[in-house]
């Protein structure tokens, strides 16, 4: 991995944040960290068709839709900022791995855009090598020319802000379980369900059908990791464990599950299968997204799933 030794003049420096993959998890932490050290950030904005096409052009065919979109976001930021942040996260600890996509992300981006002259900033988290989140942020700060102390302070401040905001979001999401109506948990990675072009329309459409969609990924993460072991004692992917644990915690409070994957990748195809079997007889709908821009197929599936749930609740077929 390339190391940037050059020290930038801090005031003028802008960090580009591609709005894909890790952004959904890290936006608060990143934005407050960079604000804490006095740097500006620049977001690539919501996914749209232009970004999809940009990403599609520089990706191999057989890869995850979210990874294609990510490259599109990176590409749209090229040349507009001093650094583009592309983190590398390998693992958080034992049985807390990330999908290989996240371990390879930095190298993949640097290589894809090697002729662009753009500088990339990494944030390397790898429990196996004793690289914690804190050490990764401090290293990132040092790479940008800040002292260890400044970086440490900014990290702690940002972490506090992140935890506070997360608590608020969690409280709001958990209130949905107490609402009256047909409740459907959307089991999808945050980067899918928060995507403006692909994920958000799914939740919006479910809402327009009169259902209450609840996100499985907004959950008490610690408890979810613990609960996931009841479903599968060997599952090793951090985010899939969070989602499965969250489903386990709330299974009695919901009427159905919608699984949304961006690609039948290793982690998702395995967890989707576990979910369909483990949570039966709870109705489960599996959706796999692709680069197609038409929404008709997805709508047909969601609408019929909503029909099944509401007929079941009424105890009769469209009576």
């Amino acid at each position: 991995m390339g190391k940037h030794t050059e020290v930038q003049s801090h005031r003028a420096c802008t960090i580009g944040l591609p709005n894909g993959l890790l952004y959904a998890h890290y936006q608060v932490l990143w934005n407050s960290f960079f604000a804490g050290v006095g740097l500006q950030t620049r977001n690539s904005g919501p996914t749209n068709r232009e970004i999809l096409e940009l990403g599609n052009e520089c990706s191999i065919d057989e890869t995850c839709l979210s990874a294609k979109l990510y490259l599109g976001h990176v590409r749209s930021l090229l040349g507009t900022c001093d650094y583009i942040l592309v983190p590398r996260i390998n693992s958080w600890g034992r049985q807390r791995d990330m999908c290989t996509r996240f371990a390879s992300l930095y190298d993949l981006v640097c290589n894809t855009f090697r002729d662009s002259g753009q500088k990339f900033l990494s944030c390397n988290i790898d429990a196996g090598k004793k690289l914690t989140e804190e050490s990764a942020f401090v290293q990132m700060g040092e790479e940008l020319g800040f002292s260890k102390k400044i970086a440490e302070n900014a990290y702690h401040q940002a972490k506090k802000e992140d935890e506070n905001q997360w608590k608020l979001r969690l409280r709001k999401e958990e209130a949905l379980y107490r609402e009256k109506g047909i409740k459907v948990m959307i089991a999808a990675h945050s980067y899918i369900i928060e995507d403006d072009y692909y994920g958000k329309p799914i939740a919006d459409y479910l809402r327009s059908l009169g259902l209450i969609p609840i996100r499985a990924d907004i959950t008490d993460r610690k408890e979810a990791l613990k609960q996931s072991l009841k479903v599968s004692p060997t599952l090793k992917w951090e985010w899939n464990r969070e989602i499965i644990g969250s489903l386990q915690m709330h299974r009695e409070q919901i009427d159905g599950i919608v699984l949304v994957s961006a690609f039948p990748c290793g982690p998702d195809s395995m967890t989707d299968e576990i979910v369909s079997r483990h949570f039966a007889p709870l109705p489960v709908l599996r959706l796999v997204l692709d680069t197609q821009t038409g929404t008709a197929g997805i709508e047909t599936r969601l609408e019929s799933f909503a029909d099944i749930l509401s007929f079941q609740k009424k105890g009769g077929l469209a009576q």
């Binding site: 489960v284 796999v288 692709d290 599936r301 099944i308 007929f311 079941q312 077929l317």
Partner: peptide
């Protein structure tokens, strides 16, 4: 009991 309880459709 005369009510659709589950369904699946081919993917892409």
């Amino acid at each position: 009991n005369g009510v659709a309880v589950d369904y699946a459709m081919n993917t892409l």
